[in-house]
Design a protein around this nucleic acid. Structure first.
Lengths: 186, 186
DNA sequence: ACCTGAACACCGTTCAAGT
DNA sequence: ACCTGAACACCGTTCAAGT
């Protein structure tokens, strides 16, 4: 780990891995083509073989965040599934505070986003929501969780204690569960 | 409008105004010190007399967005006040999609943010919420509205029709109202 | 096919100098 | 007090060239 082979072996995964490591260590602004290349012991121009440009690189980092956690087992109760998913997303945000805020600025229909979305759709269906109401519920629920996680990661609540934010998040999840149950009864 | 006086008259307000105009016209990435200076018919270095650096300039733009709309009259019913506030914030997001997403990445305790926060606090108090529950409710409520508005502004839902997003927002506000009322009954 | 070297048009920011 | 000119250390990206 951190060791770089002599005759640089490069790949898209290696480029994204280096980019994520730099973002985690020094923040998003430190993720430059030159810094990523340097960490791979390669010239900046070498990156363009594996990434079409810097935006593509950042898109790749966001996709990485959305795929690093496992989806909850489908045989768990739906409440449990949604809670674990939300916890995973928050953990991902706090683990990668430099990159996570980008999530709110990209289309919600990328491959990695669909993976999560489908899991939420399934949980909401199992909760008893009409299929016509599921997509909207998923959008609002995901946006609430993402908005909180991104705010926390970006330091919007940096002036609050960690315990306060933990309680905030618990309260958020409980409220969302209540709303889903209310929607299912209708 | 757009006319620039001969012997450049510069001020912080002028700098922020030029920055916001550029962001609205060409996106956040077009907001460079050189572009802002150019619009004011001035050298880039002249800006540093009115803004400590680029971060300070961007902070100023965010503050601008949060102060451009009026707070709802205090004699309106609390539901009406929260709805109008949310509508104003969403309008600000859609009017300044380049800058708005930055809002989620800055501390929530700036002067302009406090102005809005206090209005929400008052509305929640008038709704009958215990004073000890008001701050958390404000945080979650604001984060939900900001998260939705930022997502929409950044194009996260760009693949959905406008009417769908309007209905999403209506649904979000109704859900939040229900939660506040449930919290007040407890 | 993959990487390099040299180059280009930009960035934000400094410093000393003008008025 | 406020603005300018020149300069610096960086950016992302191109193109032709090497292997």
């Amino acid at each position: 780990m951190g060791f770089v082979s002599r005759h640089a072996q490069i790949s898209r995964a290696a480029v994204l891995g280096a980019g994520l490591a730099i973002a985690d260590e020094k923040g998003l602004s430190a993720v430059t083509m030159q810094a990523v290349a340097g960490r791979l012991a390669v010239t900046p121009m070498a990156l363009y073989r594996h990434v079409t440009n810097k935006t593509d690189l950042l898109d790749g980092l966001v996709e990485l965040l959305l795929t690093e956690f496992p989806l909850p087992a489908a045989d768990l109760p739906w409440q449990e599934r949604l809670t674990r998913l939300a916890d995973s997303i928050r953990a991902s945000a706090n683990g990668h505070p430099g990159v996570f805020p980008l999530l709110l600025q990209r289309p919600a229909n990328t491959a990695a986003a669909l993976r999560v979305r489908d899991a939420v759709h399934l949980a909401l269906t199992d909760a008893g929501l009409d299929s016509e109401h599921v997509p909207r519920a998923e959008r609002l629920l995901s946006t609430a969780v993402l908005g909180f996680a991104a705010s926390e990661a970006a330091g919007r609540f940096a002036h609050h204690e960690r315990a306060v934010l933990d309680a905030d998040f618990t309260c958020l999840l409980q409220s969302l569960r209540l709303l889903v149950e209310a929607g299912a009864d209708r």
